[in-house]
Amino acid sequence: METKQYIESGILELYVYGLLSEAENLEVAEMAKKNPAINDEIIAIEKAIVALSSSFSPFHSVANYEKIKAKLELKHADVIELQPSRNWSQYMGWAAAIILLLGIGYQYNQLDQTSNQVATTTLEKVKLEKDLNALQLKNKANETSLAVVRDSKNTVVALGGQAAAPESFAKVYWNKETKVVYVDAAGLPEPPKGMVYQVWALKLNPLTPTSIGLLEKFDVNNQKMFAVNNAEEAEAFGITLEPAGGSITPTMEQLYTLGKV
């Protein structure tokens, strides 16, 4: 085999890393003694490993590195003959281990970065989906409110503030054909904790109140447009403030708004 082919075969790298058998080590050592080009190539490979090892200080102390480097450089300062030795093979094994550790560390770092990117992308996707759902719900609420206000079949009943809350106001949209009732409670203050607004359909003579629903989840209803139960008959509508869960009869001292049909 020609010298160039022998060098390019990769056997010299395996020799330097200490990965050949004893017989193969002897063969390469013999070739190096006879052929200066092969010997020079072995020395070049070892020097490259020494230079590469300079970047691995996190894994070895400076003292250990300098010892290894000094021994490798001293070994080839003026020596032509190469003889495999147990200590030299051990050093090469360390160099191979360093390269392996570097590869593992690089792969771990890449995996960690990829995992972080996947986690970040997942969180962003969840947030986008949440924002999209919120926007869709808001748009749906807007469309419902707009449809209620625009429905010409709805009777609009204005409810004015009463003694319990003079500045309060509300509107009732009542479709006398379908009996469906919507309440626009934008003019009501947020109810205290443990309290809820209750809507009443009233017959005035004699005064007969019928509960048609509660304005629950008041704080999260941005439109403040509430669908309540149907009202079969009504001459007026009123809204009172009641304990959570509602009351059987209205608390007149807490009558916030009232309006005749």
Rank of each mutant, 00 (worst) to 15 (best):
Met1Gln: 08
Glu2Lys: 00
Lys4Thr: 13
Ile7Phe: 08
Glu8His: 12
Glu8Ser: 14
Glu8Val: 10
Glu13Tyr: 10
Val16Glu: 04
Ala23Asp: 15
Asn25Cys: 09
Glu27Pro: 03
Met31Gly: 08
Asn35Cys: 13
Ala37Met: 12
Ile38Gln: 02
Asn39Arg: 05
Glu41Lys: 03
Glu41Ser: 01
Glu41Asp: 00
Ile42Phe: 02
Ile42Met: 07
Glu46Asp: 03
Val50Leu: 05
Ala51Trp: 06
Leu52Ser: 04
Ser54Arg: 07
Ser55Pro: 06
Pro58Cys: 01
His60Ile: 08
His60Cys: 08
Asn64Tyr: 11
Glu66Pro: 03
Ala70Asn: 10
Leu74Gln: 15
Lys75Ile: 10
His76Met: 11
His76Cys: 06
Ile80Gln: 04
Leu82Thr: 04
Pro84Trp: 07
Pro84Ala: 06
Tyr91Glu: 06
Met92Asn: 15
Met92Gln: 14
Gly93Ser: 13
Trp94Thr: 12
Ala95Ile: 06
Ala96Gln: 06
Leu101Ala: 06
Leu102Phe: 15
Leu102His: 13
Gly105Trp: 13
Tyr108Cys: 11
Gln110Cys: 01
Asp112Lys: 06
Gln113Asp: 09
Asn116Thr: 15
Glu124Lys: 12
Lys125Ser: 08
Lys127Asn: 14
Lys127Gly: 13
Leu128His: 03
Glu129Ser: 04
Asp131Ala: 12
Leu132Ser: 15
Asn139Phe: 08
Lys140Phe: 13
Ala141Leu: 11
Asn142Cys: 05
Asn142His: 03
Glu143Ala: 05
Ser145Cys: 09
Ala147Phe: 15
Val156Leu: 09
Val157Trp: 02
Leu159Ala: 11
Glu167Cys: 07
Lys171Ser: 05
Lys176Pro: 02
Thr178Leu: 04
Lys179Gln: 02
Val181Ala: 10
Val183Gln: 11
Ala185Trp: 03
Glu190Trp: 01
Pro191His: 00
Pro192Met: 01
Pro192Lys: 07
Gly194Thr: 07
Trp200Pro: 15
Lys203Gln: 13
Asn205Lys: 13
Pro206Gly: 07
Leu207Tyr: 15
Thr208Met: 05
Pro209Arg: 10
Gly213Trp: 09
Leu214His: 06
Asn222Glu: 14
Met225Gln: 01
Ala227Val: 10
Val228Phe: 14
Val228Pro: 14
Ala231Asn: 14
Glu233Ser: 12
Ala234Lys: 02
Ala236Pro: 05
Phe237Val: 01
Thr240Ser: 09
Ala244Asn: 15
Ile248Pro: 03
Pro250Lys: 07
Met252Gln: 05
Met252Gly: 02
Gln254Ala: 09
Tyr256Ser: 09
Thr257Tyr: 02
Thr257Met: 00
